[in-house]
Design a protein around this nucleic acid. Structure first.
Length: 931
DNA sequence: ATGAAATCCTAT
DNA sequence: TGAGATAGGATTTCAT
C-alpha cells in the first residue's frame, strides 16, 4: 500500500554536494570522462558505418543560412510508398488529439471534430492519422411517456436552447445537436434490480457544446407538451479523447491497423484518413506488446545571464543549445549536436554548428527539431524553463518561424500558464507549450511524480541514480565562458551536451518510457495524460470500458466536499526494544482484495429503501461493518471487482511471463507492466473515496476501511488465541504492533528460523478465516526490533534467509525523513546501527554525545549541513533563487529524556534517539548575493 | 508559559 | 473544471 517509490536510504543525501569547483586554467588540462565517452560513440560509428562525408565531430560554421540537407542522418528513414487499396498500415499510436474542421457536406457552416492519432511504424516512419466520423455525446434519462415520436421536437428545442445560450456565434453554427436517439441503459450508481431504462443519447456537433447542453438540461428544460424538468446528465464530463478511445477500444500507446481499402493517403510521410469504425485496435498482447523505434530528443539550453540575475528572455541571449537523439530501445544517441553562438572548438563525437546571429541559431534549431521529428522530447525542467525561455526569446527577437514545434504544419506553439493542484502535490504553477504529436517527457516532472528524493537538482538526481554528475561549470561563469574564446565556449558546450545527455541516461535507467507506456496501455489513457493529469482519469477510463460491456452509464455527480470517513486502525504499539525475533504478517493488496471478496461496487450498492423495493432476501446481500449494504456477486458481479480481478490476474500473468522471458528488452516491458498493474489496482479504492472527484462513493470506501479494521483486529485475536503455551507452542504469541494491513507478532521463539516457520503457518491458518482472495502472508522477521511509537520503528530485516539480515529497515524515523539535515539522519542511523547490529546501546549514546559535543565546539564543517527542507524549495532553484544555507541554531535544549517506560529499563534505556528532540536546525534563506 | 492549530512528511 | 485516501508523530506558529 505504498504509493511512491522511496529514496534508497539516508546517505544518498550527499549527492547534493557538488564537486569542488576547479580553478581557471584547469579546463583545458585533460578531457573529462564524459568527453571520452562522447568520443567512444564516434569510434563506434566510424567502425559501424562508412562515413558519408560527414564526420561526427565536425565544426560547421553556419554563418547565415542553415540547411537540413547538410545532415542526412537527422531525417527519418525514407518512407516506402503506400498503396491504400492493397496495403494495410500498421503503427503504434503514441499521442492523440482532435481538431475542428468545417463541417461535412449537407451541414451548413458548422464544424466537426476529427480525431488525430500520431504514431510510428515498425520501420520508424511517422504517421498522422485523421479519424473521421466520431462525434461527442452524452446521456440523459428519457422523461416518462417519451417515445421516438418526440425525438425531433426534443432535438429541435435543445438545439435552439444551446444556440440561444451562446454568447457569440463566431463560427456561425446552426446545428449544435447532431442527433438524439433512444437507447436502453442502466445507471451504474446503485443496484436497482438490473432494470434498464430508456435513455436519450444526445450527440453534439463539437466537444465544447456538451457542457452547455448538459447545463441547460440540468437546470430545467422544456419541450413539446412535456413539463419543464431537470435532467440528470450521464457521461457528459468525459474528455473527448477518452470517449473515442473507450468507444473504439483504443488504449494509450497501442498498435493500430488500418486495413487496405479503408484509408487514404493525403500527405508526405504517411498522413492518412480513416473512418472511425474502420480502424482496428490491437490489444497489447503477444507481438502487439512491442514498441516502435520512437525518436527521443533530449536538449538543454544555456543563456548568458547578467551577474547574479536569473536570465530573462527579453534581455539575455540564448548562446548554446545541445541536443541528443536516441531511438527507443537503442543504447546510444545517434545524433549529438550543439548549436553555438560564436565559434567553438571541436568536440570529438559531436557535431557543432556555429552561428554568428542568435536569431539564426534559434531558427535553425527549430528547423533541426522539425527535421529530426522526435516523438518524445525530454530534458530537465524543459517544461518550465527551456521551452518557455526559447519561445519568449524567439518572440523578443522576432524569429517568426521558430514557434512551430509540433508535427502539424501551421500550428503555432504557444506558451500558457497552467494551474495544477491536488491534495497530493499541493498547488503547482506550471507552464505548457502545445506541440501536437510530440510527447513532452520532462524528466524533472517524472521524478517529482514518481520518486521521493531529498534533492531534485539534475546533479543530485544523476548522482543518486547513475553515480554520475554534471560537468563542473558554475552558473556564474557561463557568461564569462561565452565571452572568452573558442576553447572556453567549447568547455561550455561540453557542459551543455552533458546536461542533454544525462536526462537521456536517466530516462533509460529508470525505464520511464516503457513504464509509462505500459501504464497507458493498462489504464487506457493517452501517454500525455499520465504526466499532465491526476490518478482519477485512469480509473474513469477503466470504469467506462467495463461499464460499456454491461450497458451501464456513469452519472455526472456534483462535487461537494463532505465529512471525512474513518480510515484504518493502527494497533497501539507495545513500545520498546525487542531482542527476540518479531514476525510480520501482511494482507497482500488489502483494499483491492476486500473489494473483490465482498463485491463492493457502485453497481452493487443498495441505497436507502432498495432492499424493500427490490424485495431482496437476506441471502442476496451483505451488510458491511459500517452498515452499508451491497448485493452479492450471485445477484450481480460488481464492475470494480471485475476491474481489480483483471488487473491482478494480468499482473500474475506478467510476472510468470517475466520469469520465463530471457530477452532483457522484453523483460523490461513486462516488469513495467506488472508495476503499472499493481499501482492501478491500488488506486481504485482512492478513487471511490475522492470526495472532490468524478464519482465518489463513500459507502464503498468506508466499508473497505471498515472491513480492514475488523480484519486486523480479528487477526490479532486469532494469532494470540492459537499460538499459546497451552496449545503446545513455545510461547504465548503477542501482537505488539500493527498498522492497516499488518501485524507484528512476538511469537515467543528464540530464532529467526522458528519465527519464519510459525509465521508462515500462522499466516496460512489466519487466511483460512477470511473470504478469498483475501490472504494474509508471512513477509519478514525483524530481529532485533526497536518499536519507538506508532509509525516509527526500526529493525534488522530477515526474509529470504534466516541466517543473515538483508538490511536495517527504518520506518518514520529521522533517517528517512527529508525535513532533517543529513547530520541528524547520519547520527541517528549510526546510533541505530550500534543498537541493532552491534547490540551496544552505550556505544550509541557515546556516539551521540560525541557528535553533539563536536557540534558545540565548532568541530563540524557546517557546509555539510546542506539541507532541502522540502522539495518545492529545491525546485525553486530553477526559478533562480540560490539556496543559502546557514546554521541558525546549533542545538536546542540539551535535555535527555527517557523515551520508554521504566519496565524496559534494560541497557538500552537512555536511547540516543531522544536526540531527535535536539536536532540541529538549519534555516534556509534566500540570498541573491551568494554565488 | 501553555495549549491549540497549522505545517510537514511519513506509514499503510 | 481539475484534483486518490486516512492516521498520526514531531515540530513550528499563533493565540491567549
Amino acid at each position: 500500500m505504498d504509493y511512491k517509490k522511496r529514496n534508497g536510504g539516508p546517505f544518498v543525501g550527499g549527492a547534493s554536494q557538488a564537486k569542488r569547483g576547479k580553478t581557471a586554467g584547469e579546463w583545458e588540462d585533460s578531457p573529462s570522462q564524459f568527453e571520452e565517452e562522447l568520443s567512444m560513440f564516434d569510434e563506434a560509428e566510424m567502425d559501424a558505418e562508412e562515413m558519408e562525408g560527414q564526420a561526427g565531430h565536425d565544426v560547421i560554421p553556419v554563418g547565415d543560412l542553415f540547411s537540413a540537407d547538410l545532415n542526412p542522418r537527422w531525417r527519418r528513414p525514407l518512407a516506402p510508398s503506400l498503396d491504400p487499396s492493397s496495403d494495410t498500415l500498421v503503427f503504434q499510436q503514441i499521442d492523440l488529439d482532435y481538431y475542428l474542421v468545417a463541417g461535412m457536406p449537407g451541414q451548413l457552416q458548422g464544424k466537426v471534430p476529427i480525431i488525430r492519432m500520431f504514431g510510428v511504424t515498425d520501420s520508424g516512419n511517422s504517421v498522422c492519422c485523421h479519424v473521421h466520423g466520431f462525434a461527442p455525446y452524452f446521456y440523459v434519462p428519457a422523461p416518462s411517456g417519451f417515445t421516438s415520436s418526440h425525438l425531433g421536437e426534443f432535438k429541435k428545442e435543445l438545439n435552439s436552447a444551446v444556440l440561444k445560450d451562446m454568447r457569440s456565434n463566431k463560427d456561425n453554427i446552426s446545428v449544435t445537436v447532431l442527433a438524439v436517439d433512444i437507447t436502453r441503459k442502466e445507471n451504474m450508481y446503485g443496484y436497482h434490480g438490473k432494470r434498464s431504462h430508456d435513455f436519450l443519447r444526445i450527440t453534439m456537433a463539437m466537444p465544447r457544446l456538451i457542457a452547455p447542453a448538459k447545463r441547460l438540461l440540468e437546470q430545467g428544460f422544456k419541450f413539446a407538451h412535456f413539463p419543464i424538468q431537470g435532467y440528470q446528465p450521464y457521461e457528459a464530463n468525459i474528455d473527448f479523447e477518452i470517449r473515442f478511445m473507450v468507444d473504439s477500444d483504443v488504449v494509450g500507446c497501442c498498435w493500430i491497423e488500418l486495413p487496405k481499402g479503408t484509408y487514404k493517403v493525403t500527405l508526405c510521410q504517411y498522413e492518412v484518413d480513416v473512418g472511425w469504425t474502420d480502424l482496428i485496435s490491437h490489444p497489447a498482447e503477444g507481438d502487439w506488446q512491442r514498441i516502435a523505434p520512437l525518436r527521443v530528443l533530449s536538449f538543454d539550453i544555456e543563456c548568458a545571464g547578467r551577474k547574479g540575475i536569473f536570465p530573462e528572455a527579453d534581455k539575455d541571449p540564448v548562446i548554446q543549445i545541445a541536443s541528443m537523439v536516441q531511438r527507443q530501445g537503442e543504447t546510444e544517441p545517434f545524433i549529438r549536436t550543439v548549436f553555438t553562438l560564436q565559434s567553438c572548438a571541436s568536440i570529438v563525437g559531436s557535431q557543432i554548428l556555429c552561428f554568428t546571429q542568435e536569431k539564426q541559431l534559434l531558427q535553425s534549431w527549430a528547423e533541426f527539431l522539425r527535421t529530426v521529428d522526435p516523438d518524445i522530447i525530454t530534458g530537465y525542467n524543459i517544461q518550465n524553463f527551456d521551452f518557455p525561455y526559447l519561445l519568449n526569446r524567439a518572440a523578443a527577437l522576432k524569429v517568426n518561424l521558430f514557434p512551430y514545434l509540433g508535427r502539424v504544419r501551421g500550428i503555432k506553439s504557444v506558451l500558457r500558464d497552467l494551474n495544477f493542484q491536488s491534495k497530493q502535490m499541493g498547488r503547482r504553477e506550471n507552464k505548457t507549450v502545445n506541440m501536437e504529436g510530440r510527447v513532452q517527457f520532462d524528466l524533472l516532472q517524472v521524478l517529482l511524480r514518481d520518486y521521493k528524493l531529498r534533492s531534485y537538482t539534475l546533479n543530485a538526481v544523476s548522482y543518486h541514480f547513475l553515480q554520475e554528475q554534471k560537468e563542473d561549470v558554475q552558473h556564474s561563469i557561463i557568461t564569462d565562458l561565452q565571452n572568452g574564446n573558442e576553447q572556453t565556449r567549447r568547455r561550455l558546450a561540453v557542459y551543455c551536451l552533458k546536461d542533454a545527455y544525462l536526462p537521456l541516461r536517466l530516462l533509460q535507467k529508470l525505464m520511464c518510457v516503457i513504464n509509462y507506456m505500459e501504464m497507458a496501455r493498462v489504464t487506457g489513457v493517452p501517454l500525455t495524460y499520465l504526466l499532465s493529469r491526476g490518478q482519477q482519469i485512469k480509473v474513469v477510463s477503466q470504469l467506462l470500458r467495463q461499464a460499456m460491456k454491461q450497458n451501464l452509464v456513469m452519472p455526472v455527480v456534483k462535487t461537494e466536499g463532505g465529512e471525512d470517513y474513518t480510515g484504518a486502525t493502527v494497533i497501539e504499539p507495545e513500545k520498546g526494544y525487542y531482542s527476540v525475533p518479531i514476525a510480520t504478517l501482511d494482507f497482500s493488496s488489502l483494499y483491492p482484495s476486500i473489494m473483490m471478496a465482498h463485491n463492493l461496487c457502485y453497481t452493487t450498492l443498495l441505497q436507502k429503501g432498495s432492499v424493500e423495493k427490490q424485495g431482496l432476501s437476506p441471502e442476496d446481500f451483505i451488510k458491511t461493518p459500517t452498515g452499508d449494504m451491497f448485493v452479492k456477486s450471485s445477484v450481480r458481479k460488481g464492475l470494480l471487482p471485475e476491474i481489480l480481478e483483471n488487473l491482478l490476474s494480468a499482473r500474475k500473468r506478467a510476472k510468470t511471463e517475466l520469469k520465463k522471458e530471457t530477452d532483457p528488452f522484453k523483460r523490461q516491458v513486462l516488469d513495467g507492466r506488472q508495476l503499472a498493474l499493481k499501482i492501478s489496482a491500488n488506486s481504485v479504492y482512492g478513487f471511490t473515496g475522492a470526495q472532490v472527484g468524478k464519482l465518489p462513493c463513500l459507502e464503498i470506501s468506508q466499508s473497505v476501511t471498515g472491513f480492514g479494521r475488523q480484519m486486523i483486529e480479528q487477526t490479532k485475536q486469532l494469532v494470540e488465541s492459537k499460538y499459546t503455551i497451552s496449545n503446545g507452542y513455545q510461547g504465548d504469541a503477542k501482537v505488539i504492533y500493527g498498522d492497516t494491513d499488518s501485524v507484528m507478532v512476538k511469537l515467543g521463539v528464540g530464532t529467526v528460523r522458528e519465527a519464519m516457520d510459525i509465521g508462515k503457518e500462522a499466516a496460512e491458518w489466519v487466511s483460512s478465516h477470511f473470504t478469498p482472495p483475501i490472504k494474509l502472508e508471512f513477509e519478514k522477521v525483524y530481529y532485533p526490533y526497536l518499536l519507538i511509537n506508532k509509525k516509527r520503528y526500526a529493525g534488522l530485516y530477515f526474509s529470504s534467509s534466516a541466517d543473515t539480515h538483508e538490511k536495517m529497515d527504518c520506518k518514520g524515523i529521522e533517517t528517512v525523513r527529508r525535513d532533517n539535515c543529513p547530520l541528524v539522519a547520519n547520527l541517528i542511523n549510526t546510533c541505530l546501527q550500534r543498537i541493532l547490529i552491534d547490540k551496544d546501546p552505550q556505544g550509541a549514546v557515546a556516539h551521540a554525545k560525541e557528535v553533539i559535543s563536536d557540534l558545540l565546539c565548532n568541530r563540524i564543517d557546517i557546509s555539510q549541513l546542506v539541507i532541502t527542507k522540502e522539495l518545492t524549495r529545491t525546485a525553486q532553484e530553477y526559478a533562480g533563487k540560490q539556496a543559502h544555507v546557514e546554521l541558525a541554531e546549533r542545538t536546542r535544549s540539551m535535555c535527555w529524556r527517557t523515551p520508554f517506560p521504566s519496565t524496559h529499563n534494560t541497557t538500552w534505556s537512555s536511547s540516543c534517539l531522544s536526540l531527535s528532540k535536539q536536532r540541529v536546525s538549519c534555516s534556509v534563506s534566500s540570498n541573491p548575493n551568494t554565488s
